[in-house]
Structure formats: C-alpha cells, structure tokens
Design a protein around this nucleic acid. Sequence first.
DNA 1: CAGTGGTCTAGACCACTGG
DNA 2: CAGTGGTCTAGACCACTGA
Lengths: 266, 266
Amino acid sequence: MRRTVKATGPLYARLAQDLKNEIQSGRLQPGDMLPSEAALCQQYGVSRGTVVRAFDMLLREGLAQRRQGVGTFVARQSLHRKPGYLLSFTAGVRNQGRQPSQQFLDIARLARRDVIQFGCDEPAVILERLRLVDGIPWAIHKHIVPASVAAQIEELTIQAGKPHARLLEESNFSLFEAFAEAGFSVDHADEILRARIAGERDAGLLQMAAGEAVMQVHRKSFDAKGRLLEITEGVYSGGSYTYEAHLVSSRGLTEVLFAGDTPRQT
Amino acid sequence: MRRTVKATGPLYARLAQDLKNEIQSGRLQPGDMLPSEAALCQQYGVSRGTVVRAFDMLLREGLAQRRQGVGTFVARQSLHRKPGYLLSFTAGVRNQGRQPSQQFLDIARLARRDVIQFGCDEPAVILERLRLVDGIPWAIHKHIVPASVAAQIEELTIQAGKPHARLLEESNFSLFEAFAEAGFSVDHADEILRARIAGERDAGLLQMAAGEAVMQVHRKSFDAKGRLLEITEGVYSGGSYTYEAHLVSSRGLTEVLFAGDTPRQT
DNA sequence: CAGTGGTCTAGACCACTGG
DNA sequence: CAGTGGTCTAGACCACTGA
C-alpha cells in the first residue's frame, strides 16, 4: 500500500495531488493514459469512490479527460492551468517561470459610505499596486479589504498616516499569503470581466497609449460563512491579458463548467 | 417515493434539476435552507451518495452553498447563472426573459489551408451572424464548422453557392440545437477572452463608435473523443457584455473553480 | 446534545470501447 | 470478449454547528 508525501487533507485530494505531480513534472505526458481506477484502488488501498473523486478534481481543472470504455488521459494543452489568479498573482507568475514584482502605489482608509456601494458594509482599507512581470508593467490591482479583516494583516495597518514599512520594501508581498497566514481562507468568489478603454492614468502606468483597450476584472472573495474578505479590481492591457476558460459539460446535463484564468504574453 | 418530471439521465442529475427548478421558480429563496441530505434520501428513495452528487452540481453552478454542521442553502445572487452561453445564445437570452433574434451575414466554404491555423485540419464552413437582443445588435458570431460536421446539418449546406433557405428565413436558428439534433454533443470547450478596440466593421454592425472597446471571445468545442466540433468567435461591445464567473474553492485544496458566462445590460 | 455535512468503504450492475 | 468508466447502494465514522 503506497502512501503519499502530503499527509493532510482528504484521501481523494492527496491522490489527486499525486496525479497532478505526475502530470506537471512531465512524467505523464499529454495524451498518456492515467492508471485505471482499479489500478489506483489497489496501489493506494482505497475504494473506487475515492479514486473517482480524485479524477473529478483533475477533470474540473482541465488536467484530464475521461472516456467511458477507454480510460482517463492527460489533457492536451495542460499549460496555463493555474486558476485563482488575482488572489495569487505572485504564485501564478512564478508558476510560469517568470518573475513577479510590484510597485506600491497607494494605501488609504475608506469610510463605510465610500465602500457600501461595493457591498462592503464597514470601513475598509484600499491598497493599490502596480504589478510587473519580468519588470514589465502588467496590471494595476486595487484591493478593498474590510477593516476587520485588514486589522489582522500587519502590512495593511496604517500608522500615523504612513503605510507599513514592509509594504514599501517587499517587492513580493502577497496578499494571498497574508490572508492565509492570518487564518482567512477564501471559500468562493465572484468575478466580472469587462472590456473598456484605458484612461490616461491606466495607460501611463501600464505604458500603453491612451485609447487602447483594457480588460477590467472585478472580483469579490468570501469565506465559508459568506463574509466578504476582499474586493479586487484589476486592470490589464487588452493585448497582454487573456482570460482562458476550460469548460466541461457535466455528465448529467449540458452545463457544469470549469474555468481558470491566466495572463499570457501576446 | 416521489418521482420527478424528467425521466432521463442519471438520478443525481434529475434530483439536481428538481432542486434547480425549486430555486429558479422562486419557491426556494436565496438564503433558504435546502432539504437535508437525510430528508432527500427518504423523499427520493436514493442513497446519500446520490444526493451529495446532486448538491455538487448545484455548488459548481453557484446555486447553493453548503456549511458543515449547518445545512445547504440557496446562494445569494442566483441571477445570471446560465453557463454555456456562446453555444446557446438563443436559449440563454430567452432564459433572461428577453427576445433573441439574428441577421444572417455570410456563409462560405473555407479550404483546409485557411482554417488549419485554427486547429481545424479539414475544410470547413464559416457562418457569420449578427445576434440581437430585443432588437438591439448585441454580438457578431462567426462559427467555423468542419465540413464533416457541417454536412450533417441541413442549414449549413450550400447549394449552388447559395445558403440554405432556412438560414435566411429563420430568425431563431440555433446552432446548438442543430448540433444536438444531428447527434453531436459537446463534451468540453476552451474559451479565451480578450479586450480589443472595435474595427470599423464591428462598430458599424454593433452600432457603436469605432475606437470603443469590445470583448472578443474565442471558443473551441470538442466532443468526447476530442474531435473538433466548432470554433466560435464572438465580438461583443465592451459595455454590454460582461463575463461573470463564480469561483469555488474545492474542499481538498485551494484551486478548483466553476465559471459561468453571461451577457448583461449595463 | 441532535442534526448537519465531509469522507470513505466494499460491494453491485450497467454502458461503452476496442481488439 | 475483457477492460474501462458511469452510476448507485447501504452502510460507517468523523467533524462541525447551534441550541
């Protein structure tokens, strides 16, 4: 009975992680058949239902495809398949083998009346950063974090009207990691994408001509109890950002889907 | 043992559909608790695993949220939750209580060399339509359908250089329905979104000013065997189209997501 | 505490695929 | 035909929540 490296979490998740490692390391190539359910049941000493749930995770991430009567295969084009981007710009960019950095633009407190329009019903902290990839301006990120949440994150505190020192120094402060360290975990999020014309400020920061198109991404993240954790507004130059989604029709009906977002070089 | 209207497909899908009907009809309001797993097991005479799978479908569509120790609840903001849009513009618009229509723009045969760049390795038929909502131009849809697939769909045949009559007459021809009738079923699709500036032709058709932003959606659909069924390119005015995604973190790890796309009035 | 969902098992029967 | 995935059952134990 083989056991896995990661000793935490549900069995199906560990099994899925093992398989993901096989794929992402290249030991399993696109088009290769994954071990059959029966084989994995034996190897891991688990029941078939557990293996099926693990495969379901891979399916929903677009890493695998199943064909009844044939087998489960590593999906083609398994590149750029890291979802959850806005929250972990840092990790996402690193995963593509490129170098993320950032420039601090602004941090401020906002009164309740200024954020209530966003669905945030308490005062909040707003943080604005320019995100760069390999030194090239890539996106402008505005994060609105409710005061009660921001209070738990040292970097988001404002002392005597001045931003926290680490925020200015660290070129790789990750809000996502800060959330995790403070014990906040994102349960679900809503995202809305729009195309619009770059304003002068956007264009200047992103080093593009005013009048070009940008993609605007608006995101609200919640924890398991439905408490708002943060609102992020991202602005990306239209040419350098694409949103890529992989849609899978559920076996039952026609709809259920999966999507991952990822910026790419054009 | 209560039975459901729809007598086809897996049990969990029928159960999920029943619950969806309860929600979409308004009999269950956002925030309401759904029946517990135990209750549904009894009502429908199914095992718990089946109920769990049905709930999973609702979760992935963003229609419900579960909280351990508490219950399963109808999600807030369960509006605009119809995914799979590009394929069924017609149905999607109707679901929002508005009136879809279309204007035929063009249909033509393309040689293999003209479509191979799109990943289609045989001659294809290209169909171009202007889609309208309540009579207002909404999108330009270009569909590239491989010849072997198009041959099975009467409306996509070209006789003596002329489009099929029904294509010109029917203001609600649905490519999605035609696929289904011809026995083609979409298994998965990839979608890429970009922001760009409207060209003159785009702007004219969509009745917007040249130089405004548009959202360009590129989509490739495949059947279960990985055969390319169609490529769709959609162009939407930036103001009137938004792409809305609902992301759900999987219970196991941090990533797995769900997304639905939906156009909205701005 | 009772009730909820989260996970897991060890079977079962079926539908589909390919040789 | 043997092997695959698709579905389903009838249990089990646990973790979490709220009263």
